[in-house]
Design a protein around this nucleic acid. Structure first.
Lengths: 350, 350
DNA sequence: TTGAAAGCGCTAACAA
DNA sequence: TTGTTAGCGCTTTCAA
C-alpha cells in the first residue's frame, strides 16, 4: 500500500540520459561537473521530489553522521537541558541524534549501546547508569575505535574525553557559604555510593569543613540519598528529630533538598530561620518552592553543548586519520545560587 | 587510525567455510538452518565480536526500524515526559528513536523532517512548531506514504492519526470548579493564537461560563500568553491592577499561572484568599510553588506512549500491505489537580 | 567534464 | 539444509 518506492539517483540519470555518477556528483555540487549539468540535475531532482538515501550513503562511506546518546532518564530537568545542548550542536554540525535512555538499568544500557553500535553511530555521548558497575560494554566501543565522550557522571577505570561539572568546587562553595553564615553543625545528605558526583560533592563538603577547622562529624553525613522526594523526606525527618539536630543541611541534589524542606515543615521547623538548606543542580522548580531553594547551578545545556562539540571534533579528526588526541577533560564551573532557604548574610552591609 | 574495520558476515562465512547466506540465516535463527550450523555461527560471531550492520540491513529491507520525533523543545517538562513515553515503547518494540527539536521554528522543523526523511525513518511522531503555518513539508511525508502520528498540538487542514489531551474538557473542569467556588469574575489568560490547545482551552472556559449562565466578558480574556513567566507576570500585573479585577484566573499553562502568582505577590494580593488561580499541564514544579498550584493534569507520558504505539501499529500494518486504516484519534482525559492556589470548597462537609 | 564498474554489508528468491 | 546470485542506493576510482 505504500506508494511507489522513493525516487533514486538512477531515476534522475535515466530521465536526463546521463550516468548515476554524474548525478551523484552534481547533487553534491562537485566542482568537476558543469554548471549546466548541475542545474538540469537539481531541477529534475526537485521535480520528482528526490530525497537522498542516507542509509546507502552511510553504508558506502562508512560514516553515518549520527551520534548516539545514552542517558539515564529523559524526564529530569538537568538531563533534558543536556539533551537540548547536544541536539543544538548536532543540528548545527549536520549530525543526527539517536536518543536512548537506560532508566538507570545496566541491562538496558547494554542494549542501548548495542543498538547504537548496530546503527553505526559515528560516536557516543554517555552518562552511565547508576547500576552499571561492569563496564565491559563501554570498553568494547572504545576498543572498536569509536569515539566516546562521557559527561556528568564519571566512571573510574575508564579513559576517554569527559565533560563534567566541578562538583567538588560546587559542594565546597555551598558548604563554605553555610559556614560563613555562622553554622557549625552542618549535615550532608550524600548520594548513592559509587557515583563520581556523590564522592566529589562529599569531598567538597569535607574539605570546606576542614579548611575552616570545623572537623568532620560522621553522624552528620547520611549516605545513599537519591532523587525520590518522599524517601528523603523520611530520612531528613529522622535526622531533624535528633536531639542535636543540624543547623544547616547541604543536600546532594535538589529533590533531596525539597524532601528536607518538607520534613522541616512536618516538624514545624522554620526555614531558613531555624534550618538552612542548600541543594545542588538548580532544577527548574527550585525557584518556585516555598521558600525558594538556594542551590548550586549545574550548567546542563553547556555540558551537552561541550560534550557534543568534543565528540564531533574527535569524530572528524578520526576520519581525517589524524593522530588520536590525548584524552581531554572539560570542567565546567558550578556556581552558587542564593535564594530563600538560606538566610541572608547578616554581615552584609549593603 | 580507526582499528581494522568491523567484522562482517563474510568474515564468519570464510572462517567456517560456509556461505554468507547461511550465516545470515543462522544469525536470524532461521528455521531452515541446522542447529549445529547455527551454533558454530553464533560462536564465531561472538568470538570476533561481530556487530550486525543495521544500515546495510535497512537498505536492503527498505525499513529502518527507526522512528523520527519532531518536537518543539526538549527542555520542557511536558515534552520530556512525552519523549520518555515514546522511548519506552520504541525500546520495547525494537525501534530506535531519532530525536529532533524545532525550537518552535518553522525552518528548523522543515530541516528536521528532511533529515529524518533522508534517514528513511519508518514513521514520524510530530508536534508542530508554533511558527508553522505552511504545512506542505508535512503533507509531503504523508504523500510519500510514510506513517505520521500527530500529538499534543493539532493542525487544522491535516489528516492523520492523532493523540491529544482533551483540552476542552480540562479547561471546562477548571473553569467550572472556579464557578462552583462562587466566583463570577473569572479571567482567562489565553495562549498564542492558531494553536489548537489555545482554542480548545478557550472554548472550554467559555462553555463552562455559558452553562452556568455567567456570560462571557471579553475584557476578562487576555490573548497571546506564552510560557515566559516574566512576560505573563507583567500581563497579569496589569490585569490585577484594574479597578474591577478578576476574582479568579484560569491560565492556559502552568508557567503563566506562576507568572500570575508572582504578579499577585507584587501587588500584595493574597492567593487563594483574594485571588484563585488554576494552571494547566501539571508541570513538575507546580507542586513546589508557594502556594502550590492547582492545575489540570496532562498525561504526557501516556501521550508519548499511545502515539508511539499507534505509529508502530501503522508502520507494521503498512509493511504487511494491510489496507490503510482510517485515521484514528486518541483522546486522553485531563483531570483536575487541586492544591493550594484555589480555596477549599466551603461547602465540603467532610 | 563525464562514464563504467566495483563494492559498502546484508537479505532473499531461486536453485540445488 | 545450504549455496548462488542479484541487488538495495549510493560513492568513488580509474579511465576516457
Amino acid at each position: 500500500m505504500k506508494g511507489k518506492s522513493p525516487a533514486t539517483i538512477k531515476d534522475i540519470a535515466i530521465v536526463l540520459g546521463i550516468s548515476t555518477s554524474t548525478v551523484s556528483r552534481a547533487l553534491q555540487d562537485h566542482p568537476a561537473i558543469s554548471k549546466k549539468t548541475k542545474e538540469k540535475v537539481w531541477k529534475e531532482a526537485k521535480r520528482i521530489n528526490y530525497v537522498p538515501n542516507t542509509l546507502a550513503r552511510s553504508l558506502r562511506q562508512k560514516r553515518s553522521k549520527t551520534i548516539g546518546v545514552v542517558i539515564p532518564e529523559v524526564v529530569h530537568f538537568f538531563f533534558s537541558t543536556v539533551i537540548s545542548g547536544i541536539e543544538d550542536v548536532a543540528y548545527e554540525k549536520g549530525y543526527s541524534v539517536i536518543l536512548t535512555q537506560s532508566n538507570e538499568e545496566y541491562e538496558r544500557e547494554k542494549m542501548n549501546i548495542s543498538t547504537l553500535l548496530n546503527h553505526r553511530v559515528d560516536g557516543f555521548l554517555i552518562d552511565v547508569a547508576r547500576d552499571s558497575k561492569d563496564l565491559s560494554h563501554i570498553e568494547m566501543i572504545q576498543k572498536r575505535g569509536t569515539p566516546v565522550v562521557f559527561f556528568d557522571r564519571l566512571v573510574s577505570g575508564l579513559t576517554g574525553d569527559q565533560v563534567v561539572v566541578n562538583d567538588f568546587k560546587g559542594a565546597y562553595l555551598a558548604t563554605d557559604h553555610l559556614i560563613n553564615l555562622g553554622y557549625t553543625r552542618i549535615a550532608h545528605l550524600a548520594g548513592p555510593p559509587g557515583l563520581s558526583i556523590t564522592e566529589d560533592r562529599l569531598e567538597g563538603y569535607k574539605k570546606a569543613l576542614m579548611d575552616k577547622k570545623l572537623g568532620i562529624d560522621e553522624n552528620m553525613i547520611v549516605h545513599g540519598v537519591g532523587v525520590d522526594i518522599d524517601v528523603t523526606r523520611k530520612i531528613a525527618f529522622e535526622l531533624l528529630s535528633r536531639r542535636h539536630r543540624p543547623q544547616a543541611i547541604f543536600a546532594v541534589n535538589d529533590p533531596a533538598a525539597v524532601g528536607t524542606l518538607a520534613a522541616a515543615q512536618d516538624l514545624g521547623i522554620k526555614v531558613p530561620d531555624e534550618l538552612a538548606i542548600i541543594g545542588f543542580s538548580n532544577w527548574q522548580f527550585t525557584e518556585f518552592t516555598n521558600p525558594s531553594l538556594s542551590t548550586v547551578d549545574q550548567p546542563g545545556y553547556d555540558i551537552g553543548h561541550q560534550a557534543a562539540l568534543l565528540l564531533i571534533e574527535e569524530i572528524e579528526r578520526d576520519e581525517e586519520e589524524g593522530p588520536k588526541a590525548p584524552d581531554r577533560t572539560v570542567v565546567l564551573e558550578a556556581s552558587l545560587i542564593l535564594r530563600r532557604s538560606t538566610p541572608k548574610p547578616e554581615s552584609m552591609i549593603i
